[in-house]
Design a protein around this nucleic acid. Structure first.
Lengths: 225, 225
DNA sequence: GCAGAGGTGTCCAATTCTGAACAGACGCGG
DNA sequence: CCGCGTCTGTTCAGAATTGGACACCTCTGC
């Protein structure tokens, strides 16, 4: 493992400790599935840490089309857009499962970051978020939707799945509808692609669980075009 | 004007002053058009400030497809991805015109930011970059390409153009090819859309210059769907 | 003044994609 | 164990998009 990855993890965990000190105990909240933590247009200048569960970030267009920007899970920080200083949220954060989060106000968190001399860790974190979005833009512009789906599946499986031999197993954490909102296509196409992936041996499904074959999927993403 | 916008401007200019102190005089470089300032895969942990000219950020796929992420101009900072801590660039920065830039190493810049207590301004800036990318993802996922083009034209015109009555005039700063790499479509489609925009009165062209009708273009982006 | 290099305008066949519809499967709560 | 809602699987006609081609234009440098 490259040393810089190790460094990033250490710094990340230090951010978590900083968050612990910045958040008051009574900010621990249990959120039901489908419930919003914050929504577009709301005033909310806080950052959040996920203790357990999963949260998705999304934006909706005037026409009612949704875009799913990211999925975060246990131990992850989200809501960093408040550092921009605009009082209103531009995106919506929704629990995907029964989820427990903790909240810290932007100012409290920044004060603790300064105290702990963790500014660099925070910058690293924010730059990481920027790069994640940047890569998403790149993929949308340069890859065909089928390959984007493969990449998204692999990414989600690596983040949320459990290792099971050559497979990463995902237990029904994400619907075709949601996948379509990440990939940028329609739900029927997702279904069709998934069918094809099954034939190609990239994935296996049993019930609602999906297992992603790591090596084959990686190869598929790299190949063709 | 909302007070937070004013605050953002003040903080932004303070970042520039910080940059001044962090960059050594001999880091001022003149870059010829089409020349790279840094390229994907290169080791470079610096941030840059544009004194004059224009710089584009792009990424290229293995298949040779390019994605144009952003265009920056005089007074803007770029290269913030180095705050992530990875030694190598994931994107390429290219001068679009004869351009003069100044450079500051990541560490020098961060040291000066701390000295000047400008950490919040830097966080605000980075969060802003993240949001820019995020909105780009959203647009790619939810808007048809014709509207995306209209939005891109308006954005570029507001950034680089000069006010001329109800129009914003752009003097041939950007080719159809480049537009296609922002919008995420092919060059012939850009040409066709531009044609249509002309008929609809959204833009006017004389020679290589393009004038964007602000109000009409805004309305077009908001309307339909 | 000519050649060549971009850039723009245009066309078209092949392909991909959308949007809407409908049926069946599954799981949850009453 | 029944009904309902959500999710998946499937189909399809129509629309949008691609990618390749070619002509023309305007610069630039030789």
């Amino acid at each position: 493992m490259p040393t810089n990855v190790v460094a990033a993890r250490l710094l990340h965990s230090s951010l978590r400790e900083v968050f612990d000190r910045a958040s008051l105990p009574d900010t621990r909240v249990r959120v039901e599935p489908q419930a919003a933590i914050f929504a577009t247009g709301e005033e909310d200048e806080s950052v959040y840490l996920i203790e357990s569960g999963q949260v998705k970030l999304s934006m909706a267009s005037a026409a009612g089309k949704d875009c799913l920007l990211a999925i975060y899970t246990s131990g992850e920080l989200f809501g960093e857009s408040c550092f921009h200083g605009a009082p209103k949220r531009i995106e919506t954060a929704t629990a995907m499962q029964p989820t427990v989060i903790r909240r810290a106000s932007r100012t409290d968190f920044l004060a603790e970051v300064e105290k702990a001399r963790a500014t660099e860790a925070l910058l690293r974190h924010l730059a990481g978020r920027m790069i994640e979005r940047q890569v998403a833009v790149f993929d949308l512009v340069t890859m065909p939707s089928e390959q984007r789906l493969a990449k998204v599946l692999l990414g989600v499986a690596e983040k949320l799945g459990t290792v099971e031999g050559v497979y990463l197993r995902l237990d029904q954490k994400i619907s075709h509808e949601e996948l379509s909102q990440i990939v940028g296509t329609t739900r029927p196409r997702i279904t069709a692609f998934m069918q094809r992936f099954r034939k190609l041996g990239l994935i296996e499904t049993e019930g609602r669980a999906v297992s992603v074959h790591r090596a084959r999927t990686k190869e598929f993403i790299g190949s063709e075009r």
